[in-house]
Write a protein that binds this DNA or RNA. Structure first.
Length: 559
RNA sequence: UGUCCCAUGGUGUAAUGGUAACACAGCAGAUUUUGGUUCUGUCGUUUCAAGUUCGAGUCUUGAUGGGACAACCA
């Protein structure tokens, strides 16, 4: 292994990279093998994306491999629906796995290893009930008590365990336990349960088994079978590591090692699968892929790109201390990506009419607009202009503050790519809302240039009222009102922190004609407004856009 | 009154006993046919105490604060 390239490298490395480089240099491992081990009992969320980027990213960086392994040891919670969605999401994120495995592939091996542990006197069949086991486990501060069945003979244990497998017992009647230490300060070491009886069909093995291994017994052994060198998981498993090591050592099998990092937390959202499932099941959101959900499919539907999510995961880094990342970091990554890639178009979300009184009534002309000022290769397009346009409600004010550079009576403003116009008057409805604004244009400023060189501070976007299309636009706000929704007040739950206004549907938005063929997941920057993506439910005659994120806005801040 | 993990600007993440740094956010300015982008400048950091050392963010001990652990979940 070359070491000189590494030492001269000034790049910052996280603790996992340091561990891996040490292991590679010392010869502890010759190549690295990682794995991403989801349980197929829910959809992947942004926290999983972090784990995916770490596991796949590390293997890629150091020339190793990553397996996808489904941790499917609990048939009552798992389903192929989740298997499929998980695979889709990983691919969409841009990763491909070396091997696709299932813990259930290893059930036979796991069973025979369990028999080996029995033969070594390191496991026993326990007849205690769930309640008795719980009671005798003790507490974190008091030692537990040995089970009365703890000293059964190896022969009895072997026979009983075989009978468990054969279906001779009902759910809960017996368990197989590792024989470690009921007084161990680490609760996980107090004779942890290795197998429980569950008479339920498994999504892959059907009714072949009625005993299923627990996570602690299955996970490390699966890692070992796959010769995983670095088994990377979140912090809450660090207390399981002694047990992880105990099984591997007792079985004398390939020594995989577990390393833990701090899970991702993001402001104003929840990240637990249980809570996400609850939001879906109880109808607080429209589904797993609701654009307000922190799921991968939710972000996808909202308009996020895989690149922006990967970039985000790199940005936030990896360490062992608890963290809470501001949601805006996600938006930053998105803007950074889409600024360079999304074509610009003009759209008016809250339309009011703008009538150019000195422009010929029946005239229409075509103007040229740049598709992406960051990327000349995206070319230009034609947009039409006439005497009646739509502009944004916010872009007109009757009594404007002095730093308001938009439309207000007597002030000149540029209509993007069109003309300089001067606002003359407005019309209101009975409630006093402005419905129509009048102005006059300067014919010498076609395209938006000022031949006399006068400076125009404001430029606003517009849509030709005589040549535009209607659309529905979903505006999303944070799903939760508080930064840490999990921390609910006394007697309340995270549900009480839900934002009742997290979704606003805008009807009758006006879009430039070029958008008529937009297909689901197409992404655009609506000039001055933000990034928008076409929703799955969008149809040619009923366009629906999702606002992915706004543009940075230093104006509303100034106000 | 247990065991384990963690503690660096507002938020994250580096610094491997030798000048505390980078990103984002904030603030100020420049540029701009998007109040976007881009560019420049700027603000601001080692939880506390003792110890080891020529020298400590880093090592030791203690304290404080935060987190994890008592599913036949993962």
């Amino acid at each position: 292994m070359e070491t000189n390239t590494v030492t001269t490298d000034r790049e910052q490395k996280n603790f996992l990279e340091q561990i891996i480089e040490n292991d590679l240099q010392s010869g502890k491992v010759s190549a690295i093998q990682t794995r991403f081990p989801p349980e197929p009992n829910g959809y992947l969320h942004i926290g999983h994306a972090k784990s995916i980027c770490i596991n796949f990213g590390l293997a890629k960086k150091y020339g190793g491999k990553t397996n996808l392994r489904f941790d499917d040891t609990n048939p009552v919670k798992e389903d192929t629906e989740y298997v499929d969605s998980i695979k889709e999401d990983i691919h969409w994120l841009g990763f491909d796995w070396a091997g696709e495995y299932y813990a259930s592939d290893y059930f036979e091996q796991l069973y025979s290893w369990a028999c080996e542990l029995i033969k070594k006197g390191l496991a026993y069949v326990d007849d205690q009930t769930l309640e008795q086991i719980r009671e005798n486990r003790g507490t974190v501060q008091t030692p537990g008590k040995n089970s009365p069945y703890r000293d059964r003979s190896i022969e009895d244990n072997l026979r009983l365990f075989k009978e468990m497998r054969e279906g001779k017992y009902k759910d809960g009647e017996k368990t197989l336990r590792a024989k470690i230490d009921m007084a161990h300060p680490n609760m996980n070491m107090r004779d942890p349960i290795m197998y429980r009886i569950i008479h339920a069909s498994h999504h892959r093995t059907g009714d072949k088994w009625c005993i299923y291994p627990m996570y602690d017994y299955a996970h490390g052994e699966s890692d070992s079978i796959e010769k995983v060198t670095h088994s990377i998981c979140t912090l809450e498993f660090d207390i399981h590591r002694p047990l992880y090591d105990w099984f591997i050592k007792s079985l004398e099998i390939y020594p995989s090692h577990q390393y833990e990092f701090a899970r991702l937390n993001i402001t104003n959202t929840v990240m637990s699968k249980r809570k996400l499932l609850q939001l879906v099941k109880e109808g607080y959101v429209a589904g797993w892929d609701d654009p307000r959900m922190p799921t991968i499919c939710g972000f996808r539907r909202r308009g996020y790109t895989p690149e922006s999510i990967r970039r985000f995961c790199e940005d936030i880094g990896v360490a062992k201390r608890d963290n809470l990342i501001d949601y805006s970091r996600l938006e930053n990554s998105l803007r950074d990506d889409l600024n360079k890639r999304a074509n610009r178009v003009m759209a008016v979300l809250h339309p009011i009419k703008l009538i150019i009184d000195n422009y010929p009534t029946n005239q229409t002309e075509e103007l040229e607009a740049v598709n992406n000022p960051e990327d000349e290769s995206k070319g230009k397009r034609k947009i039409t202009f006439s005497n009646t346009l739509y502009i944004e409600q916010d872009d007109f004010m009757e009594n404007a503050p002095k730093k308001y550079f938009r439309m207000t009576i007597g002030q000149e403003v540029r209509l993007r790519y069109a003309y300089i116009v001067k606002c003359t008057s407005c019309e209101k409805d009975e409630q006093g809302n402005v419905t129509t604004v009048h102005c006059e244009y300067d014919p010498l400023t076609r395209g938006g240039d000022t031949p006399d060189g006068r400076k125009i501070k404001g430029t606003i976007h517009w849509v030709d009222a005589n040549n535009c299309i209607d659309a529905k636009v979903n505006i999303f706000d944070r799903l939760f009102l508080t930064e840490k929704p999990d921390e609910a007040e006394e007697g309340k739950t995270f549900l009480d922190n839900l934002n009742p206004n997290s979704l606003t549907v805008l009807e009758g938005c006006k879009l430039e004609k070029s958008l008529k063929d937009a297909k689901p997941l197409d992404k655009f920057q609506f000039e001055r407004l933000g990034y928008f993506s076409v929703d799955y439910d969008s149809r040619e005659d009923n366009l629906i856009f999702n606002r992915t994120a706004t543009l940075k806005d230093s104006w509303t801040k100034q106000k």
